[in-house]
Nucleic acid binder design. Structure first.
Lengths: 104, 104
DNA sequence: TGTAAATATGTCAATACTGACATATACTCG
DNA sequence: CGAGTATATGTCAGTATTGACATATTTACA
């Protein structure tokens, strides 16, 4: 992973610790972060595909527009639960979710 | 889903609301719950497969034995984040995780 | 049987996540 | 250029989730 991306992650509040820690970041942590970003990307794609605005999606899942924006922005305050909820509510099929999990 | 299972879910703190609500439970909610349980099952399988005790797994992911027990018991206080962390820390491969999604 | 290891259950203070709100910025089109 | 719509950002009080701990129960096996 490139240094500028690392800096962005840190600036966004992701607890990656120091650069040294990050480079030694356990495979487990790295995989979890990668998984989250993969699902986030799938949320945005699915929402657009189904022609839903952030407000539409927020209403479907009883959340708020600002929270959908935070999900798609990769805000560190967003849980995996919420990401998957959004993905499901956006109309993604089980196969879509599976592929998001599989994608590197 | 059978009534006794519904009662167990409610007793365990899952917010499924009344029986009527549950029967009308949105497909979204049902899919999320199903996904969680599928992943939980995968955690237990993977931990056993890799010959790890709950204490071993807890140490790997810097959690505690009691929390691992709660994960595997399907405790409603456990987040999807923690379940996936456990799955990854237990040694499950990306393919294992994918299969957990595929499993009904 | 006994007993050591593993797993389960209950609690709680600390922390993380939440929806809601206000407001700012960006994007369409006329 | 506006005006309307969509998305982004910052904040916060309420709620959910956390690791840790004590303790109970189950399991494995001599």
């Amino acid at each position: 992973m490139k240094t500028d991306k690392l800096e962005r992650l840190q600036a966004d509040g992701w607890k990656v610790g120091s650069a040294e820690d990050f480079l030694q970041l356990s495979d487990e942590e790295a995989r979890l972060v990668a998984l989250k970003f993969s699902l986030i990307s799938a949320v945005k794609k699915s929402r657009i595909k189904h022609k839903l605005s952030q407000i539409d999606l927020a209403q479907r899942m009883k959340s708020s527009q600002s929270r959908i924006a935070k999900i798609e922005a990769g805000d560190s305050s967003v849980s995996l639960d919420l990401i998957v909820r959004a993905l499901i509510a956006s109309g993604a099929t089980t196969r879509d979710i599976q592929m998001a999990f599989t994608a590197k």
